[in-house]
Design a binder for these strands. Structure first.
Lengths: 213, 213
DNA sequence: CGGGCCTTTGATCCTCGTCAATGACAGTGG
DNA sequence: CCACTGTCATTGACGAGGATCAAAGGCCCG
């Protein structure tokens, strides 16, 4: 397994951290909203760190349904796979900047891959809990909570994702997402602003959290 | 993050494979059904490989709901965490044998932690797809499919898990699980045997797979 | 024989998916 | 400037699927 993995084969040198010897860090890439970073089936030659904006990682089911596995915000890593072929798609949610880390010949990778893998595993497990156990309202509340965590100390922030993104992330429909946001508004837990209603002003963080439990 | 992780700190030496220098492999542990391996909050000092039987990894929500993150069968690894404290529980599903790999002082770990982490991540992502996108019948079909994959070439096998285990794994109720098994029987996709109806005889593998799509 | 555990089945309620329509806003072309 | 179109969010009506509550049957064990 490991031997077949292009990224891991060349890059797996944990213990080395950013700034190590010969860096495999490339220049930052600037992306427009919805721009594709990589697609399923492509050869995986790099992992990425988000510098600004957000990225969605998703799969398409045989029936064409999109399922968003995760959103990656500032500082988060994506693109680390088991094999050397992409199993999912990566796109910019909005205008974004990302930094690729390629496997150069003999280059030491300045990142801790194990730590990235474990962090992403923990993220995936947490999402399992959210999705499985909870009602639509709780899922949306958990999503808002997750977004709020990405903006610590800020009671107003832009989610950037469309209702459709949120729906495909939480495994519910756009209509249900909209209804849940309406309920959160009615409960005076948040306000929505902006033309697309994607800017959240958090009114009652405690009530939000208590919903997710 | 990495520095706080007892397991990773001492064991993270990928590139070294089984059989390397000074092994941290311990003796096999024999477990009775439902025996606890570790609990949430405990200090994490080892990872484990399943030799025989099956193990369930689960969390308890604040409301006391059990949510099973994964079942680990023969050959699979569990217990690799981001931090040095257990975030979940591990129990034997049935009588089982597991091998712990501890962090000895200066011991080289004979396993590839990154590979384990990535495999578990892929498992978690696949489970997200199953749980999110599909109806109860599809979830149960996917579960049976997963179990069947653990017994390649065998059209009859023991699932070992109770209906309650399956329910908590798939995020549905016991009653729904039972109804779905009834439907699968009615569709002549499988038979159930044994006192507890946990032995599956697969009659139509193709039909089962086509259900999960 | 009686009690406990597990599974199954039935009846009812409620949440969410589906279908349909509306409104707000941006961009385009006349 | 205005009509037209497209996109996105919201809301309503309806129906299906699963949760919940309740009960019964099989099997093991005391």
């Amino acid at each position: 397994m490991l031997q077949d993995n292009a990224i891991v084969k060349h890059m797996a040198v944990p213990g080395q951290h950013y700034g190590a010897a010969e860096s495999a860090k490339d220049h930052t890439i600037r992306l427009k909203a919805d721009e594709t970073i990589y697609s399923e089936g492509e050869y995986a030659f790099a992992i990425y760190q988000v510098e600004a904006g957000a990225v969605r990682i998703y799969r398409l089911t045989p029936s064409g349904q999109r399922y968003i596995l995760s959103f990656c915000g500032k500082g988060e890593w994506f693109g680390l796979e088991t094999g050397n072929v992409r199993t999912d798609f990566a796109e910019a949610v909005c205008d974004a900047r990302i930094t690729p880390f390629r496997a150069n010949r003999n280059a030491v990778v300045p990142v801790d891959l194990l730590n990235i893998a474990l962090t992403n595993l923990a993220k995936a497990q947490h999402k399992q809990l959210v999705i499985t156990e909870q009602s639509a309202l709780k899922r949306v509340a958990a999503f808002v909570h997750e977004m709020a965590d990405g903006h610590p100390g800020d009671c107003e922030f832009d989610m950037m994702m469309s209702r459709s993104d949120i729906a495909d992330y939480l495994g519910i429909t756009v209509e249900t997402v909209a209804r849940c946001f309406t309920k959160l508004r009615e409960k005076r837990i948040l306000c929505l602003k902006g033309r697309l209603q994607r800017v959240v002003r958090l009114l009652d963080r405690d009530a939000l959290i208590s919903l997710t439990i």
